[in-house]
Design a protein around this nucleic acid. Sequence first.
DNA 1: CTGTTAGCGCGTTCAT
DNA 2: ATGAACGCGCTAACAG
Lengths: 329, 329
Amino acid sequence: MVSRAPRRATLEDVARVAGVSRSTASRVIAGYGAASATARDRVVAAAAQLGYAPDPAARALATGAGVRLVVAVAGAVPTVLHDPYVDRVVRAAAEVCARREVGVSLEWLPLHAPARLRQLAEDRGVRGVLIVNTTELILAAVPSALQGRTVSIGIGSRTVPSFDVDNGGAARTILGHLLGSGRRRIAMITGPDWMPCTRRPVTAYREVIRAAGLPIRLVPGDFTATGGQAAMLTILERWPDTDAVFANSDAMALGALAALRRHGVDVPGDVAVAGFDDVPFAALSAPALTTASHPVEQIATAAATAVLDRAWVPPATAYPSELILRESA
Amino acid sequence: MVSRAPRRATLEDVARVAGVSRSTASRVIAGYGAASATARDRVVAAAAQLGYAPDPAARALATGAGVRLVVAVAGAVPTVLHDPYVDRVVRAAAEVCARREVGVSLEWLPLHAPARLRQLAEDRGVRGVLIVNTTELILAAVPSALQGRTVSIGIGSRTVPSFDVDNGGAARTILGHLLGSGRRRIAMITGPDWMPCTRRPVTAYREVIRAAGLPIRLVPGDFTATGGQAAMLTILERWPDTDAVFANSDAMALGALAALRRHGVDVPGDVAVAGFDDVPFAALSAPALTTASHPVEQIATAAATAVLDRAWVPPATAYPSELILRESA
DNA sequence: CTGTTAGCGCGTTCAT
DNA sequence: ATGAACGCGCTAACAG
């Protein structure tokens, strides 16, 4: 004897129990069209009684809405996916998706291959797209069929709304703190040149340092700790009198810290170090890292919610970053 | 004038171009039933020409297969979702899902609420379930309708295959190293008692330490750095002569390191510290953390692949952990 | 305000 | 080996 799995209630069942037609039940469930109060009540009651929940696949098929949210991370190589930052974005998106009965999938978006965007536009399974770390080139290649259901975590465009931390403001705050505590020869470890997200911090750095009549000392990093170490060595060699370093990510800052420690440079005595992101381990380094917060989860949640709900959103939303004062600067 | 989005090719289109019926085209595409060589060729050609790709929603609706993979993290409180470990699992799953045109959603599985599992079993949208950090109670509550498409990252059961790191072996390796380098009063910072994943390491600890005729010194942590600091303080106070600490996670180990530093205890001179996980920042602490690797992505990828492909898998797969020797022990 | 009808794109018997 | 026909569960026109 096979105990058959109890077939899940369908809209048809709900309608029958409620004594209305499927359409009426559908309207009530979707909260869409009009329905009499009595009909509404009966449908709601029936649905609750039967433990009804709509089938996302059937709904997607009927509406053509798509069934998954694609997180597309732009980059030169596929390994851009292997970054804790991406992990956090995906996790937040997956949490938002759970409530909507959809899922998220993650893929690499090659910097010079907008073809993939066209494919995504034609894929009926795609409900929307969350672009991460994008460039103007990629934004310009977003097909019209994807507009209105694509948002960017990073820079935006006229057709793709942006959700991002106010990293320019964060840079100013940090640099202000460094200057305020008497530092005068401040170097900055940036991200790769092609990354638009490094532009505003770099611009802020240039403006602030120039306004103070101090020397510009820029070294590119790659957002990894290893890159931060290398950059720090470059700084040490090129400008030995540097008394502060602002790294555009905590990972790079921690790398810089390691390099300084290895060279017997005292932090913050000889050199102050500040990062950006406030990752969990920033509080645990020796010395604990001064940095600025980066509400990644909040940003990703808002971005995912916006595309799933197809709600109107302003062209650009900047999330504030807070100075986290610790020991290193 | 509205430039309509170029409607994506459907199976019907492929069939028409190939000059066969939809059924035949369907068989060829699915690689399922029989079809003449000529028919096969024509269908394949037509599909390629039209850039055809099946609609996941329609397919899910027809087969009842479901459209998303649910990552369910067991725990007492919803905040168990906010852990870098979970982030890594979800990210890996989302990457696997992308190739199958499905998505992943993330949710909390309350420790004593198997009701949610029943709901998941009835949800037609659910393709499969990936349980993380589970308990015997939860595994026993997995409905039969979910069996065969549910796997566990952690302990398993007769009906739910397990994918996990060999954390017992890892503990033995680390403890062997500590003993081998002359440590004799070794304390261990464990996870919460209810977490099955802490049992094997603790058992290993008990066995190894007892076999060496040394004292057992166990303190519970919570897998966070803060918890590790607190646990370290307890150890310092309760057993001041401790000369080595094995923490069951790098986060706790880094917390312990911070506590020792604050108390002026030299690592590894006075006390050796070892962790487990080999998180990116383990290499950057001062001193750099000795630990054991934890191939989370590999495990999650295998687990997700198993449930999506419905392939048979052994009841338990243990992934080896490697000793990562650095400075702290 | 409500019910009828017609698909959405695909898998899957059944005849042939 | 192949095609006609039906159903998966739901939404959206339309007619009442």
